[in-house]
Write a protein that binds this DNA or RNA. Structure first.
Lengths: 210, 210
DNA sequence: AGCACGGGCTGATCGAAAGCAACTCAGATG
DNA sequence: CATCTGAGTTGCTTTCGATCAGCCCGTGCT
């Protein structure tokens, strides 16, 4: 039996998938693409985008406000869907930028729907995953709205850990985190300076090591 | 031809629906339910919930933090789906509370999927609507993270207006808003006192009237 | 070597929003 | 009728986090 992709690995945590499901799933990963870090993959307002399943590397989705401020909505890690909403929506309402070199499989929407028709269990699993993503955005919203900088940061780092664990990217001692403090700041709705202080606090409390 | 439900009205703004689509849609609104204001309709952690389509009244979805703070994730208005994620997720991850007396139609998920199979255009429209809801949560996140209290409040009130317009609940002069300043505060991640000040500012700027 | 650059780190100052307290007013409620 | 409650309003004080400014350090470039 072959190695599971991070995507299959994640879905398996929700629903038991048969070998047939897994091969159907594999067929989705046909056209593999590579992207370099720092160059936007999708641009706000752009039409006719495709969706991707992330195989390797980290990506972030963000919005830019008229005043230049940036808010990172979410980070995507291996196994995560990418730009699905932009496709349904017909035009992207946010930017997507690789923060490390990235490998991703382009997914044709019709292929996905075909796969759903063939194996309903797969459809369930993917919907589960989508719901989970949405729930995470909601949790993120709650954090920014009602948690202070310290709680918010700690919570976010833990959540990232939980997500990475699902795809086997966590070791006994921690996980490899390519995020700069600037990115964390834009994700958490803080300034980079303050993120730095908060991280120091967490370290001093013994809750965090680099 | 009969009156369109708010739901049909909203979907029609996205996709042209045939009479057949509309009757299929109507069949979903079978078991109508009434709820009183202030009593939770869905409770965090509760399992086996149903989904609803809101016909009349306002509802809010929120989360409570361990420290007692509340963050309102979204308000639902007539025509909006309710608790769809809780169903896919099998167990509710947030509370839903009517803020006015509410009429809603219970939707059985299998009915919905049947309807989708029958008229694909309907499926497209519903997915469109779901994407739009998700996009609104994201926009909300951005607002809380990167807009100041004034911008945030103004933006949110405008967005509410745009949503209400889609279902015909806006007049020349404005819309009927049953939200208390406490609720606005919990939605915007502010204190009620501060919301009050911000609203006063907006009034003084001539951007808002009660 | 020299230098530019990005990321991380820290101190000092400032301001937006929170917190607290008090008061009004309109409806309930008894 | 008195009173109680909840929403809205305002003044004053406090605090959290932003902003500004500068520093260190590793890397890549010429």
């Amino acid at each position: 039996m072959m190695d599971k992709s991070p995507f299959a690995r994640k879905l398996s945590a929700f629903v038991a998938l048969s070998d047939e499901d897994l091969t159907t799933l594999d067929r989705l990963h046909q056209r593999r693409r590579n992207f370099v870090a720092g160059v936007d993959l999708v641009h706000q307002g752009q039409a006719g985008q495709s969706a991707y399943i992330l195989a390797k590397g980290w990506v972030c989705s963000y919005k830019i406000l008229p005043n230049g401020a940036r808010q990172i909505v979410d980070f995507q890690i291996p196994g995560d869907f990418l730009g699905l909403r932009s496709v349904l929506f017909r035009t992207a309402d946010h930017n997507i930028e690789p923060i490390t070199p990235v490998e991703a499989s382009e997914v044709i929407v019709t292929d996905l729907l075909d796969a759903f028709a063939r194996t309903p269990r797969l459809a369930t699993a993917v919907l589960w995953a989508a719901s989970r993503d949405e729930a995470m955005v909601v949790e993120h919203l709650v954090g920014i709205g009602r948690r202070n900088a310290l709680e918010r940061t700690a919570h976010y780092l833990l959540e990232l850990g939980a997500r990475l664990k699902l795809v086997g990217l966590v070791t006994k001692t921690g996980y490899d985190c390519p995020l700069s403090q600037y990115m964390l700041a834009d994700a958490l709705g803080l300034s980079a300076v303050h993120v730095n202080r908060v991280l120091r606090q967490l370290r001093e409390m013994g809750l965090l090591t680099f």
